[in-house]
Nucleic acid binder design. Structure first.
Lengths: 344, 344
DNA sequence: GTTAGCACTCATCTGCTTCGAGTGCTAATT
DNA sequence: AATTAGCACTCGAAGCAGATGAGTGCTAAC
């Protein structure tokens, strides 16, 4: 059988209606929806066909039809063709000082969730390679050193360590120079025993401090590349959709959203070649089991210097794909331009 | 009427039983629970009295009794008298390097939630006064400066700013000295126009940079004292308690836990004289409206240098107060000793 | 090819009944 | 006088029967 013009119209009408109401939609409703262009009987015949073809489903005999995963898939594929974008309040947010990317991401997630009425998730930036850019030691107390580590992409980490043998100001200056000249531009893998022993030699009396510092720096870089930060927001929006908010499902879904490690399958791990594309997972297509009754739309952002991450929207299958896709597309482009501007 | 020995025994029995089952408890159950020391009829009479006195409630005629807020309150007041403590896995967590207090707090919240099966919240540390301890400027790119600001209590903030007129290394060194000698130990209120103009004068050619830096520092301190960080964990634990997990209540409660700004009434704002005490809010006693069907136990921690915050447990009214109180007490003491050790 | 009409299906709603846990009261017992 | 046994009573929960109605599939007429 072929998906002719009329079948498409009807299919779209079913999906749109179901999106609004969340209730199975019947033939008469559709008939009215298309201004009685066809009678309910005709619609019924077509619906029968559409069901046979797998685009729609009857939850039970004598109920209306709801779109199947395949039906949604068709719908999404359709609207993915059209493109357009418009400015949003995001712009304003981005203008705010980007001091800590983290807090911006949290705010973005909140904004997204608010805007769409679905749940939003954002993964913190991942780096392809963690290169050291800059290290700075300072004394903050009589017996404590502050280590500031700046990684490629201006990711800053601080550590405070306690040392017994405190260098004086001049020694500190020398150590800073030593550290930076030896380590700049190296990845963690490149800091091997060779480099370390060479540095220790040059450090002279304060070899112990150098050791401590290196250990901390290694720790910082490792910690950063290990724990993937994922922020979620608007999780409770799912209560707005009855088909998701029965106790069993809501509990499962919220639990998944709370334990962000379960979401890692959704985010761009940096291995794939997916680029800045947008993915739509409908129902069972989702890599996360708990979301088999939802749809998930994810977009990967990339901000230069190999910094990349993922933004995602989690909602009911009947989510407003058109709006979500548009929002994500806009967001992506604004995020990228705003960041470029900041980078200058 | 007087709360005699027997009434107390029965009241405790009712509360204990209700804690286990979550179901209203009847007279026969209690009779069996006390090894038939009294018959169900006697219990019924006593229960009737207890109800009249307001300690227990009948959800509907011919149902068993459940404790009222007043009943719980009595129970909590009782066990608050007994004290003891024991080591826990917390110790192990604390041994981990406390590099960023933030991440430790998050982990603690998770641990607490896991351990108790209730929802946990932890407020990030607040400072009575935000005093500047240390400022450091470094060049990280051709046209970008990194400002590291260390506040009293070793709270570290980073900012990266773009400058047109980049100082060279020597100038930077001088500026660092200038900044630190002028600003150390000052609170934000104390950095007035007088101080600023004096510094600008001394800065000479790079007055513009000094201005920029000061602006950023002010921003950092302001931001820190404004947005109170609150972390929650185990919010979905509430699904384990049927009396909280009907759609209406669960939604409301989870929403409150998600929008942490709604929790600020629960945390120690630093104004009160409450010290490190433990508060128990039962039902309507809670300052947060959405938690009128829960109980909330909060404890304030204080880590020296005026750093303080709050840890809280949110669960059903029938929560295991004994365990929760013990856990919180242990945690408090460990947090404080561990931090002191770290401070050295 | 389209549509009107009709018999049929089935989830949902409503009211009714049954069941049983639990109570309060009274009278008997200790 | 305090305790207990016994019994009538209450009321929510669970189960069932019928009514309702939205929606279908099929057939016959247009």
């Amino acid at each position: 059988m072929e998906l002719d013009e009329r079948k498409i119209t009807i299919l779209k009408a079913i999906i749109k209606n179901y999106m609004d109401t969340g209730e199975p939609v019947g033939s008469r409703t559709i008939s009215k929806y298309v201004d009685n262009r066809w009678s309910s009987a005709t619609i019924r015949n077509e619906m029968s066909d559409l069901e046979e073809m797998g685009y729609i489903i009857q939850p039970h005999t004598s109920a209306g039809r709801i779109p199947s995963d395949k039906g949604y898939r068709f719908y999404v594929d359709q609207i993915t063709l059209e493109k357009d974008s418009e400015a949003a309040e995001v712009q304003e947010l981005m203008i705010q000082r980007i001091d800590r990317l983290e807090s911006v991401l949290k705010k973005l997630a909140k904004l997204l969730a608010n805007d769409t009425n679905y749940a939003a998730m954002i993964s913190g930036p991942r780096y392809r390679e963690n290169k050291l850019k800059f290290i700075q030691l300072s004394r903050v107390d009589e017996d404590k050193l502050l280590i500031v580590t700046v990684l490629e992409g201006n990711l800053i980490k601080n550590t405070i360590v306690h040392v017994n043998d405190v260098p004086n100001d001049e020694e500190l200056l020398n150590m800073n120079i030593l550290l930076n000249s030896n380590l700049n531009g190296l990845t963690i893998e490149e800091i091997n025993l060779d480099v370390i022993s060479r540095m220790k030699q040059q450090a002279g009396s304060h070899a112990e401090v150098v050791d401590l510092v290196l250990e901390q720096v290694a720790e910082v870089i490792r910690a950063d590349s290990e724990d993937l930060q994922i922020y979620t927001s608007g999780a409770t929006n799912i209560f707005k959709y009855p088909e998701l908010s029965d106790n069993q499902k809501a509990s499962e879904l919220l639990q998944t959203l709370e334990h962000t490690e379960l979401l890692k399958d959704l985010v761009d791990t940096g291995d794939s070649e997916s680029g800045t594309g947008i993915q739509v997972y409908i129902g069972e297509e989702s890599p996360v089991q708990a979301m088999k009754d939802c749809s998930v739309v994810t977009a990967n952002y990339e901000l230069g210097e190999g910094i990349r991450g993922t933004i995602g929207i989690i909602g009911p299958k009947r989510m407003d794909y058109e709006k979500v896709l548009k929002t994500l597309r806009t967001l992506m482009s604004q995020l990228e331009t705003a960041f470029k501007k900041e980078e200058r």
